[in-house]
Amino acid sequence: MARYIRLYWMMWIQGIQAQIEYKSSFIIGNVATILGQVTGIALVWVLFQKIGHLNGWSLPEIMLIYGIAALPYGFFELFFNGVWSLNRYIRMGDFDRLLVRPGSSLFFILADQPMLHGLGNIATGTVIILLASRQLDIRWDMCNLLILGFMVAWGTLIYISINTITACTSFWFVASGTNFLYLGQRFRDFTVYPLDIYASPLRILLTWVIPFAFTSFFPSTYFLDRDDYRVFVYLIPVIAVLFFGIASFVWRIGVNRYESTGS
């Protein structure tokens, strides 16, 4: 374990160095992420110029959900973004390089390409949360901060799991240049809004199949004192661990498949 942490740290530093190499891209990358968050929330703001509430949710409440959604996403990008390279690695035959290393190949791929622009997501998310909390009267005392910290950590694990599973499709559809990761990510777009605005099939999907709701909406309900969703808040760690288990399993099947077809 200690070895993995040390190794991870080294790989992370190297990955970061590779990015700092390109100074302007570091800056513009973060500017772009911030821009993405800002335009996203601006759309909601524009909409609220015309309406008073969205299915009973006020603008600050939606901002809180939006801000919390940005955190695990940002941490995922900053630390575990490597699964995005899986498709390219397999296509170019570079995946062998990871397989011959001593240790878990999933670990190596996750640590492979940290994206510094995750920082932009974390920063904007924090600012949006703070703006929302001012109007909602949420106090960020030690207790709340700790709880948020845990939720973000579990949320990051959920991101790792979902993205690993969708990335694994590359083991099956190599030549087609397809990336199911994009498809999975599109479902993330839903979860920056309250879950109950969607029809029930979509709600079930976002809760039990692609459980992004556990990374943003359910955590937010805790801070908004919506007791009707409390059960789902307790389920956050369960879902995270369960899906990580599924992800590891799918990964193993994928790798075995890769080895047996390897050219």
Partner: peptide, 13 residues
């Protein structure tokens, strides 16, 4: 700029 994804994303947003 040797890496351009920031610009691409900015433009997209």
């Amino acid at each position: 700029t040797t890496s351009i994804f920031g610009f691409i994303n900015a433009k997209r947003f």
